[in-house]
Amino acid sequence: MIIDKIIKLWTFFSFVLILLIFAPLIALTLHAFTNSNISDLNSSILTQSIMISISTSIISLFIIIFLGTPLAYFLSKIRSKFLYSLSTLIQFPIFIPPTVAGIALILLFNDSSVVGNFLSSLGIKIPFTIFAVIIAQVFVASPFYIRTLQLGLININKNYFNSARLLGASSIKIFIFIIIPNLRRSIFSGALLAWSRSMGELGATLLFAGNIFQETQTMPLAVLTSFENQNGFDLAVLIAFVSILISSIVLILFSYINEKFLTE
């Protein structure tokens, strides 16, 4: 009986977490509706940051899916300790601070580095350009996609692979016609996580790509810029609200697609 009461009390207090998650979002939404001006919706800092965030995050997502899908499959098949360590290191961007990621990227691509010097000789400049925004997003978001796919691969029935091999299917055919269809939910979930991480990226982008208006200023950076402005708090709240609205639309769309097309 005492244990049951403790569990009930513990469950009751767990609702504090729900309050902690939803209360700030409600406060932000109320402030956006009551204190923001309609004219701010046409603000160039808002419209430009929306376009940059959406375009770069979509490009980043395509890169992550295209390169991350076969990589996750490869990492799931490895047996050597060295390559297993590689699989662990790929998750490292999840655990390091974004500012550290930004410093690491700028050290790799600045003009004095081997990579940066080579790219400069080709007339390609990466730091403080739109390319830096995309690279920073791919760096911080790809581990979420890869890890999700790795977990999905673990749950695939291995008999599918054995049956396909007995029927003479090549590795490419197994990957395309067996693994990809069975991974569709993991691919979609991983893509959602990667996209949301890209949309919310701030630290690595700030240090590696800068906060350049109409060039590299994403929505998180626009929020930061407006917040630091003496009279820009209401605009910062509006940009934050629009960011939440975009994410909510994507989440609802994901839930609909998951329910209609991905549920087995």
Rank of each mutant, 00 (worst) to 15 (best):
I106Y: 00
S43F: 04
S80C: 10
G190S: 12
K158F: 06
Y145L: 04
V138I: 14
Y73L: 00
F144I: 06
T69P: 03
G232K: 03
F144C: 02
L151H: 04
I244D: 06
R147M: 10
R165M: 05
V237T: 02
N35D: 09
F161M: 06
E228W: 03
P24Q: 01
A164E: 05
I26R: 10
P220S: 08
L122F: 09
P97H: 00
G68Y: 13
Y256H: 04
F233Y: 14
T69H: 00
L89R: 11
V100Q: 01
Y256V: 14
Q48D: 15
S163Q: 07
S170P: 08
I18R: 12
Q217M: 12
L235T: 03
V250I: 15
A240W: 03
F254K: 07
A141F: 10
G152S: 10
V115N: 09
E201N: 01
L167K: 04
T129D: 11
W195I: 09
I146C: 08
I50E: 06
S87P: 02
I176H: 05
L153S: 01
I6S: 07
I154C: 09
A27W: 07
S14D: 08
I257W: 02
E264H: 11
S198G: 14
F128P: 05
I78N: 09
L119D: 09
L9N: 14
I187H: 04
S226G: 01
I126Y: 09
S85D: 13
G152R: 02
F233I: 13
L119V: 01
L193M: 15
I63E: 10
I246T: 04
N117A: 14
S76C: 02
I52Y: 04
T56P: 11
V250A: 15
I212D: 03
N229R: 08
Q137F: 07
F131H: 05
G200L: 11
I146Q: 03
L238R: 02
I246A: 01
I3C: 14
S247E: 07
T205V: 15
L61T: 13
L28C: 03
D4G: 06
I52K: 02
S113F: 02
A194E: 09
E264M: 04
P181I: 03
F139S: 02
I176R: 11
F12Y: 12
G168H: 06
S43E: 12
A101L: 05
S171E: 15
A236T: 01
R184V: 13
L83G: 01
F33N: 03
T205K: 06
I3A: 15
P181E: 09
Q91D: 15
N211C: 07
S80V: 07
P127V: 10
R165F: 12
I174Y: 10
T99F: 11
I179K: 05
